[in-house]
Nucleic acid binder design. Structure first.
Lengths: 199, 199
DNA sequence: GCTCTTCTGGACTGGCGGGTCCATTTTTTG
DNA sequence: CAAAAAATGGACCCGCCAGTCCAGAAGAGC
């Protein structure tokens, strides 16, 4: 009844994938439905058939998809982060992932920033995905503390926030400079700061 | 001849100031010439009289203005940064400045990121202002090394980049969360990382 | 005063892009 | 196979917004 044929699902997925690449390359403002249409060999009708709320639905789907993809690239390290080795492994995985994508222009935090003034509700939806990322880091710091690898007095939330902001800053400047060094410097700095809380 | 009356200069300045506030609040995409017009009690004619290239000129002027304002808020610390005290003083000055502006949505790096896909040339112009900021940090790190407060083997450019990315990340997440903590955590982390290179 | 320049107001245009609508084709279901 | 549901194509509409144009007001210089 309220179905979605295999064919339909495929089309929907195709749209999301193309739209994701487009939004990463051009930003929210630079992504037009017409380009998506052209890039996927679909029609306006289909776009609104699968994403009734238009651009809003589309952006939400993109955030979900891209969030999953980015998190995936950080596994298995992101789920561990319970030893110094795994933190460094994580760092390397992140750098390796983005090294192949330096021409992209739109990290998740940048997306949120761009969205907030125009559509706070949608921005909040997207922000939930950023929070997932943050939560992994926070869980990691917790584990480190539980294992007495970092000082018990250290505030795990605060430390995770520090790592997260460094990461996002690294991505942002990486995009602005179209170079990987900023990301590397940012992550190295974050881990150095984290290490200075070791016992 | 190629004059600019006192009255004209005042109008131009008024436009820049209002436009700056607008762009910080709504982002580049959300800033319309009509809103600027309304906010400054001017007309389309004047906008294009003072900024012949329209939005491009305007954005460049905004970047210049805002860059000056932000740098100003960090003085005198930003010119020193030659002792640990001055780095912490700088940190506090930055936090204090942005504490009054947490509802703003558009840091300079975010601006660059948003601009790059649409207008790379303009983005480069804006990036020059970000570089000024970075240069101050790099000079500071140099001084610290010259005074043997940090390890001679440390790469000053890299360390400055680390601080800069942390700062930008702090601003970005601050905007996304509309809270000051991310900025504080980011700067504390950066200084901690910097300190771990002390002799 | 006159003239030339700068400043101002606002009507107008043109295109872009999001979103609507419906007719047609394809697939599922029974 | 027939009917219903889902998928597709694309023409159309409409509002928004950057940018144009020009006529007229206000100053500067003489």
């Amino acid at each position: 009844m309220s179905g979605l044929t295999a064919k339909g699902a495929a089309t929907k997925a195709r749209i999301v994938r193309t739209a994701t690449d487009l939004i990463l390359e051009r930003g929210v403002g630079g992504m037009t439905l017409d380009e998506i249409r052209a890039g996927t060999a679909t029609s306006k009708g289909q776009l609104f058939h699968y994403f009734p709320d238009g651009k809003r639905d589309l952006v939400a789907a993109i955030a979900e998809f891209q969030s999953g993809r980015v998190l995936e690239a950080q596994r298995p390290w992101l789920d561990q982060l319970d030893s110094w080795e795994s933190w460094y492994g994580w760092r390397d995985a992140v750098v390796a992932h983005y090294r192949t994508l330096t021409h992209l222009h739109c990290s998740i935090s940048a997306l949120i920033t761009e969205l907030t003034p125009a559509d706070p509700a949608l921005a909040a939806t997207v922000a939930a995905h950023a929070d997932r990322w943050f939560d992994h880091l926070a869980a990691g710091v917790q584990k480190m503390r539980a294992q007495r690898l970092i000082h018990p007095e250290a505030d795990p939330e605060r430390l995770a926030l520090m790592v997260f902001t460094a990461l996002q800053g690294g991505l942002l400047v990486m995009q602005a400079h179209n170079a990987i060094e900023p990301l590397e410097a940012a992550l190295d700095g974050a881990l150095l700061a984290l290490r200075s809380h070791r016992i």
